[in-house]
Write a protein that binds this DNA or RNA. Structure first.
Length: 504
RNA sequence: GCCCCGGUGGUGUAGCCCGGUCAAGCAUGCGGGCCUUUCGAGCCCACGACCCGAGUUCGAAUCUCGGCCGGGGCACCA
């Protein structure tokens, strides 16, 4: 997979695993980690980086990796997202050993629930939401907590029957209503949801909450190390407690802070809003940090991997990454494999008097053996207007790989020049050029969506129109190239010659 | 409001657990130079940080306390 996308890169950038700090209590061959996506939205770079960490640690310790869909809220989960995550993980070169969905295990959860009720550790509560949250806030138990086991068992049965309305009853854990950790204050374990699930349909109406499902699954899957972001920190105590009641083993938790990329939203709701408002085109908009977005944007999965390992610590501080840090890694990987092409933005015609007609051989790369193309030249060339505007009449200019000319006449639409010499003359500015045999090219230039002050960036997506040498037409969709003196770009669309600017 | 957790150059990190070897390493960025038939790459040089205060100590980025700032949590979401 990776070899296909970025041939030759793997060998050169192997040491990534070595740079990860050691995992606590990790025994080689016995480590089991997991990818726990909720299939309720498109995968983004945060899922990816977390997945990379889990994958690399499993690999580093010669362990195993689970892909486990946390799909216990049928109202949020949608079928298309399962595959979106599988595809996304694969794109990053993450291979997992086992796969399951929590929704497969409802009967198992029910068994454990009955067990908890029997032991007098859980009760059916029919308080409404406000009462429950008030009770939690005030640290007071409600009357249902004192119900006898027999009653709880029959109420639980009633819940499972499917006859109860949503919100009328939940199963709660007897935790500690006076705990400082609010998650411990008799949390809800199961609730009633009358909504079809994309995988199991209408079979179940009683669904576990995150904590009970994760507590059981992490144990059942034999997870030894949970690497996750810190918003779950308060759940550790709860999940461990549940497992201790059930006689299950708990994993080691390694938590790190959440992060974001500067000026780029990651939250599902926010992205959805931007799409609805027409500010971005969709989930694959190149300005977004969704997997589809960064793929279109031309960022290499290998670069994200290396970035994750090298620029990411297991820190607790909130991080705001500058995109430049990622670009630097990406550029380093792209530079040796990206062919160079001539693209002239905002072109101006140059007529060169006395120009020799040449069949020029232009190398696709200044130092790597990436081949060359032949270009037949005459006396008419197009060069970037901006480069010519910097010059005065009488100054010299070199058409890269061809010859030097001297500018005679600078008009708005035409530059008249005269051929001077073939050999390189030091100090003469060099520009890229295209002949009359060229193709129209447009380049989308993405930038951050939000400015530093939080306002929308009015120039978050610019379009640069220009012309490219004929060979540009052969660039395959998804291929990354460098337009010389312009920047690295990726061919976006199969039908038009449309590119997306990656970085300089 | 309450409860957790953090604060190292512009940015991301290493170091902090086990105080000295840290007048703080790396990457990126910015500035300058070299090289290069790209404003890319490469090479070299330079710039730039331990949130504040008190305490412990011969000695604190590292330990303690207080403050300030930031993040997270307080769901029948995950």
């Amino acid at each position: 997979m990776l070899e296909e996308i970025a041939p030759g890169l793997l060998g050169r950038h192997k040491p990534e695993e070595k740079k990860l700090p050691p995992l606590p209590n990790a025994e080689p061959g016995k480590v089991v980690t997991r990818l726990p996506p909720e299939p309720s939205g498109y995968m983004h770079i945060g899922h990816a980086m977390s997945g990379i960490l889990n994958y690399l640690y499993a690999k580093m310790y010669d362990g195993k990796l689970w892909l486990r869909f946390e799909d216990t809220n049928p109202r949020k989960v949608r079928l298309e997202y399962y595959e979106s995550f599988r595809k996304g993980y694969r794109w990053f070169g993450i291979e997992w050993d086992y796969e399951k969905s929590n929704s497969e295990d409802l009967d198992l959860y029910y068994d454990y629930a009955r067990e908890l009720i029997r032991m007098g550790l859980a009760y059916v509560c029919s308080c409404n939401k406000e009462e429950m949250s008030r009770g939690r806030f005030m640290m007071v138990e409600c009357a249902h907590r004192q119900q006898p086991v027999e009653l709880n068992l029959s109420l639980w049965k009633e819940m499972l029957s499917g006859d109860l309305e949503e919100g009328s009853a939940v199963l709660r854990l007897k935790g500690d209503m006076t705990s400082k950790n609010t998650a411990m204050r008799d949390p809800t374990l199961f609730r009633i949801i009358h909504h079809p699930h994309p995988l199991v349909g209408d079979k179940y109406t009683v669904w576990p909450t995150y904590d009970i499902a994760a507590a059981i699954e992490d144990a059942v899957c034999g997870i030894t190390h949970v690497l996750r972001s810190s918003e779950f920190a308060l759940r550790d105590e709860l999940q461990n407690y549940i497992r201790s009641l059930l006689g299950l083993r708990s994993p080691v938790f390694v938590e790190y802070s959440r992060f974001e990329f500067k000026g780029t939203p990651l939250a599902k709701r926010e992205i959805r809003r931007l799409i609805e408002q027409g500010i971005v085109s969709g989930w694959d908009d190149p300005r977004l940090a969704t997997v589809e977005g960064i793929r279109r944007r031309g960022l290499l999965p290998e670069a994200i991997r290396e970035f994750t390992v090298s620029q990411t610590g297991l820190t607790y501080t909130k991080r705001v990454y500058a995109w430049e840090l990622l670009y630097a890694v990406n550029r380093r990987m792209l530079d040796p494999v990206a062919r160079r092409y001539f693209f002239v933005p905002d072109p101006i015609l140059v007529e060169v008097e006395g120009a020799p007609e040449l069949r020029a051989e232009l190398p696709y790369h200044p130092s790597e053996p990436l081949g060359k193309r032949l270009v037949q030249t005459g006396s008419r060339f197009y060069v970037p207007r901006k480069d010519v505007q910097k010059l005065k009449e009488g100054s010299m200019l070199r058409l890269k790989h061809l010859f030097n000319v001297v500018l005679r006449e600078l008009a708005d639409d035409l530059v008249r020049a005269t051929f001077v010499s073939r050999e390189v003359v030091e100090g003469v500015p060099i520009v890229q050029w295209v002949t009359e045999d060229h193709v129209r090219v447009e380049v989308l230039v993405p930038d951050v969506i939000y400015l530093d002050d939080g306002q929308l960036n009015p120039e978050s997506l610019k379009t640069v129109h220009g012309i490219g040498e004929k060979a540009c037409a052969e660039i395959k969709p998804g291929e990354r190239v460098q337009f010389e003196r312009f920047g690295f770009c990726i061919r976006d669309d199969a039908s038009a010659l449309s590119f997306i600017f990656i970085h300089t």
